[in-house]
Computed example of a mutant assay.
Amino acid sequence: MAHSYSGGELFNEVSLRLAPGSFHFLTGPSGSGKTTFLKLCYGALVPSSGVVRIFDDDVRQMSRDDIALARRRVGVVHQDCQFLDHLSLQENLALPLTVSGHEALDDYANLKELMGWVGLTSRADALPPELSGGERQRAALARALIMSPDVILADEPTGNVDWEMSQRLLTLLIELNRMGKTIMIATHDLGLIRAAKNHVQARVLRISERRLQLAGADL
């Protein structure tokens, strides 16, 4: 796979398969293309050349509806997660359920359980501007999980929180991996990677010189 944009080529001859239940870190300097790579992984972008398959389907051959359905199996934790400020936290987290037509009582019971799992039960009625940075990051993770995805792609999920909170978020992602979820975390935080390696078998990938490389064992 290769991908270019107006400023030049970003990737060249990149090949990767995310095996079910695997755990990956994606590293590289700012501007190397980590966010773009994640977008290619969930079909928000189409590669300039080569093939991207989402659950074995070629993204070029998928209709918009096909891509939308596939994305329900992929939870994305965006670097700067946007919430609707006039809706409560609980209403924001429930939006994917509403849009997809999943409004059964069981779904909302799962929502309450998920909010408890990320430690936000007491903030259910809070508006987004009232949330701290750590609460917003946990809310972003919860919203990515609300549809019970098979794959979770997290773009710098600990970039705006302190070390204690980053460890809590990492622990949540490791627990999800132990439940069989496939995880990829884009990060520049080597300390986070070192902490994870004590608890999970993770591959560390690095974008360098427009290639995707397996990082050294000294991380």
Rank of each mutant, 00 (worst) to 15 (best):
P128M: 04
E13Y: 00
L38I: 15
R64H: 07
L214R: 13
N177M: 07
A195V: 03
Q201A: 14
S63N: 09
L131K: 02
A44F: 14
L212R: 06
D56L: 09
F25A: 07
R168Q: 03
M147E: 02
A217W: 15
K39C: 12
R194T: 03
D189R: 00
T187D: 14
I152T: 03
E9Y: 09
R168T: 00
R17K: 09
T187N: 11
F25P: 01
A94K: 07
L120N: 06
R123A: 13
L87F: 12
D80L: 08
H199I: 03
L16E: 10
L212Q: 13
L38P: 09
L131T: 07
L172C: 01
V200P: 06
L219A: 09
L127R: 11
W163I: 05
G216S: 13
H3Y: 15
E209S: 05
S132T: 13
I193Q: 03
D85E: 14
W117G: 07
G119Y: 05
T98K: 13
P128I: 11
V99A: 00
M179E: 11
L16V: 14
E13G: 02
I54Y: 06
V77E: 01
M184Q: 10
L214V: 15
D218I: 07
D80P: 04
C81E: 15
S100M: 03
A94Q: 12
N92S: 04
N177I: 02
A104S: 15
Q82V: 13
R203E: 15
S6Q: 12
G116L: 06
V74Y: 02
S148I: 09
M179N: 01
F37V: 15
E175C: 07
V204G: 02
D106N: 05
W117V: 06
D150A: 13
L89Q: 12
R178K: 10
L127A: 12
E164T: 04
D106V: 00
H188R: 07
S88D: 01
A202Y: 08
A186K: 09
V51F: 06
